[in-house]
Simulated scan of single mutants.
Amino acid sequence: MTEIFGYARVSTTDQDLRIQEDALRAAGATVIRSEKKSGTTTEGRDELETLISFARSGDTIMVTRIDRLARSIADLSKIVQTLESKGIALKATEQPIDTSTPAGRAFLQMLGVFAEFETAIRKERQLEGIAKAKAEGVYKGRKASIDADQVKALAATGMGASAIAAQLGIGRASVYRYLG
């Protein structure tokens, strides 16, 4: 008997998975795996890995939108290739994607291109915003987590890098960076 498995994903912990899970149930998913992980890589996405390893030939893995599955062409291609090699179809509830048909596979590839483009544009805008904020003196980066004066003062007393690192709870490489 073939199964329909649902996969829901959001990027941040403050986002809600319920809307995706409800849509997947309504579309016939009997088992749904969900996680709150970035879609820019498949690394560390244990629920997706579990789902792919559990599904069998003839089964379907369903997502609401393709960007819930992957944000890069490389990751999307790898996932689709893995599913196809196992005889598993991929469908989306909000897009005409069904890898069991040629048209569905073509549409999937087009959406993958747009998802990767969107990620690249977002990153570009973010970098532009940071550069502008730096130029205006608004953005100064992350606050230093190590007190450089304290590192130098301890070194001036003759304390070694390992001892300084242990006392301040930092890495020895950080001590050398401040003393270098």
Rank of each mutant, 00 (worst) to 15 (best):
R122S: 11
Q81F: 10
L90P: 09
A103S: 15
A89G: 14
K86L: 10
G137A: 10
I79N: 10
D67I: 01
Q95G: 05
K140F: 07
Q126D: 09
K143R: 14
A89M: 11
S85R: 11
I88G: 14
A120F: 01
E128Y: 06
F114T: 06
Y139W: 13
K143S: 14
A74F: 05
Q126P: 08
Y139H: 12
E128L: 10
T64M: 05
A92W: 01
S72F: 02
I73D: 05
S85M: 05
L127R: 11
A89D: 14
V80M: 02
L108A: 15
Q126G: 11
P102Y: 02
R125K: 14
R71N: 01
R65G: 01
A133K: 12
I121L: 15
L83A: 07
A115Q: 03
R65W: 00
K134L: 08
T82P: 02
A133C: 09
I61Q: 01
A144K: 06
F114R: 01
I73T: 15
V138G: 09
G112C: 09
G87P: 06
T119G: 14
F117T: 08
E84D: 15
Q81E: 14
I130L: 15
A89V: 12
I66R: 02
E128H: 10
A70G: 06
M62R: 13
A131N: 10
V80G: 00
K132F: 06
A144V: 05
L69C: 07
F114Q: 05
R105L: 13
A89K: 13
K132L: 14
I88K: 08
I97M: 03
K132S: 13
I130K: 13
F114P: 00
A74V: 04
G137P: 09
G87D: 12
K123H: 04
S72N: 05
L69Y: 05
A74N: 11
I66F: 11
T93C: 11
Q126C: 08
E118D: 15
L108E: 03
T119F: 04
Q126L: 12
I79D: 13
Y139P: 12
A106I: 15
L76T: 00
I66L: 15
M110V: 09
T101S: 14
I88F: 13
E124H: 10
R125I: 00
R71D: 01
G87I: 06
R142L: 09
R122F: 07
D98C: 07
I88P: 11
I66K: 00
I97N: 01
R142M: 06
T64I: 04
L108I: 00
D75M: 02
